[in-house]
């Protein structure tokens, strides 16, 4: 049932997916949610996934990126000016 996996654990799992795909595929919020539901079935809810993404971002472990669509990425040094 939903709630069996903690939000912290989900965030860790999501971080793993983002790190694994870094540089190859930009993960969207929906991709991460789908990946978690595929892995844990009804042990997780969409709301759990939302909370986990919020934790991932609020903690600074991941950041939002944008190239034609929003994605969740590893923080990088700013791709600034130079």
């Amino acid at each position: 049932m939903a709630g069996e996996i903690s939000v912290e654990q989900l965030a860790d799992e999501m971080y793993g997916v983002v790190a694994e795909n870094a540089g190859m595929k930009k993960m969207k919020a929906g991709d991460l949610t789908k990946a978690m539901i595929a892995k844990f079935g009804d042990q997780v809810s969409k709301q759990d996934c939302k909370s986990a993404i919020k934790l991932l971002i609020d903690s600074g472990r991941c950041v939002y990126g944008y190239y034609g669509g929003s994605s969740i990425e590893l923080p990088r040094t700013e791709g600034a000016a130079n």
Partner: peptide
Amino acid sequence: KHGGLVGVLGYGGGVIGRYSALPD
């Protein structure tokens, strides 16, 4: 230049990164 990874903590919307292509 194109977009970028900037924003305020926790938000994925509300800020659009923009950089000059000729910063020097």
